[in-house]
Amino acid sequence: MDRPSRRGRRKRRILPGFGLSLGFALLYFSLIVLIPLGALIVRSAGMSLGQFWSTVTAPRVLASYRLSFGAAFVGAAINVVFGGVVAWVLVRYRFPLRKLIDALVDLPFALPTAVAGIALTTIYCTNGWIGRLLDPHVRVAFTPLGVIVALTFIGLPFVVRTVQPVLEDLDAEIEESAASLGANRRQTFVRVILPELWPALATGFALAFARAIGEYGSVIFIAGNMPMKTEITPLLIWIKLEQFDYAGATALAVVMLAASFVLLLLINLLQRWASRRQHAYGD
């Protein structure tokens, strides 16, 4: 006797709770995240193209893009270089307090952005600990340089934490074989080790960059917020909201979101590139 499958049977799961868990999770996520984000998209669609364009290309806005994206780029670049060094030193060498320092690397991740903002401002303003050393040749606080400092702080853990695991998994034998073939340390580093680190460095850069362009709290204290000079884009959005210019705020938000999503895609691709390189070593 041949029993054909019944409709209900096919969907049955072995482990319990699928419907409940997925249902609740989707409901919550939709209510808290998806629907509000959707509202933003819908709102922006209500604007005319001309209005949208003039809003997002106003001179003050363009200046804010230059600052937000530019400083984020520089900050992420600084992090790639020095964060890479930090990762190297933490993985490869032993020195006192190494474990403590390793744990502290995550501080920018856990510290409230406002606290970071006021702390950095205090240090780098003209009578701050560092600021007074640099004054009057270099001013950090209330200049784009200050913004760069803040965004470097914010992105610090991203590069270090992305590069560390790759360094830890690096096979000592590769370096040994390079040495046995006659390469000196510099050559080994440049030709053998660095190529392994590129994917992780690139991913770390992208993550730090993505985080920095939207950063608000740690920047607004140290930036000075002068229109056309030291205003970041998120601040402009905030200002427009205060003025009840919902449309303008929405337009800017859409531009920022578009940039974030492009970056997210890029990061996704980079992470896949990185994991492919890692798994090549018999993970």
């Binding site: 006797m1 029993r3 096919r10 072995i14």
Partner: peptide, 23 residues
């Protein structure tokens, strides 16, 4: 065991159809 569900066919325990019984 009931850890997979067949596309078609049936399982009987002691002559009784157990195909729709949960694990």
């Amino acid at each position: 065991a009931g850890l997979e569900i067949p596309d078609c066919g049936s399982i009987l325990f002691h002559g009784e159809d157990a195909t729709d019984r949960r694990v």
